[in-house]
């Protein structure tokens, strides 16, 4: 157990491709649904409690040692939008590359061999946490935090928000993060007995629809 590895894994500078993605924030800005700091906070709260919670559950289950390829299916079942499935696998592939260098481990190699075009990002994140010696709750925290950290950084660039105000949004969501990570880790504890149905399966239809719209735009700053 090496808790400091969580700082490395959750660092926005960890070279796993996240900088080119907005987590749906760009489309929300383009559509006028996010215009300011208050709108960003609502967007992040919604994302955290839906796709953030789902990602945290998958990551915690992978960190607990549940079969990654079964979690791949569980992730597909929880990701309605083809564009978001594509993004998740692409980011998973990039994270797998970084994680294999940072924490060489037979389980990461096995997943890379089974999914050369990429596995779902939360599954890779959980397995990376496992190989780094972290606990399922740690993996859930990393996934939950990432689900809002990316949109905040992207929105600072898209709307020229005051970066201090934007960072305060993340700080104000800390209690929600605690709640989501704990719920995800608790669900992951039940997966060995109950199977993937134990994992959260919340969805955010507007994020799905917006992701499909964003994917068709010719001019955009972020890949998703």
């Amino acid at each position: 157990m090496n808790r400091a590895a969580l700082l490395v894994l959750a660092d926005g500078r960890f070279p796993a491709g996240g900088h080119a993605h907005s987590g749906g924030a760009e489309e929300a800005v383009t559509a006028g649904r996010v215009r300011d700091v208050a709108g960003l906070e609502e967007f992040c709260r919604g994302r955290l409690h839906t796709s953030g919670l789902v990602a945290a559950g998958l990551a915690a289950a992978a960190a607990a040692g549940y079969e990654p390829l079964l979690l791949e299916e569980a992730a597909d079942a929880r990701t309605a939008s083809p564009a978001l499935r594509h993004t998740s696998r692409r980011l998973g592939r990039q994270l797998l590359r970084a994680a294999r260098s940072a924490w060489p481990c037979a389980e990461l190699e096995a997943l890379a061999a089974a999914r050369p075009r990429g596995a779902h990002q939360p599954v890779v994140l959980g397995l990376a946490a496992r190989c780094a010696g972290l606990m399922p709750l740690d993996a859930a925290y990393a996934a939950a935090y990432e689900s809002i950290g990316g949109p905040v950084t992207a929105t600072v660039r898209l709307l020229r928000l005051d970066p201090f105000d934007a960072t305060a949004v993340l700080a104000r969501l800390a209690a929600d993060l605690d709640h989501v990570a704990a719920a995800a880790a608790e669900a992951a504890q039940r997966i060995h007995a109950d199977g993937p149905a134990a994992l959260p399966a919340g969805s955010a239809p507007l994020l799905d629809i917006a992701a499909e719209q964003h994917a068709t735009r010719a001019a955009r700053l972020f890949a998703s």
Binding site: H19, Q94, A98
Partner: peptide, 20 residues
């Protein structure tokens, strides 16, 4: 390759998308 408003990041700090 799409670079997310930071072209230098994609060629220096986080090269994963370009490597792929």
């Amino acid at each position: 390759v799409q670079t997310g408003a930071c072209p230098h990041t994609a060629i220096r700090d986080d090269i994963s998308a370009n490597l792929e």
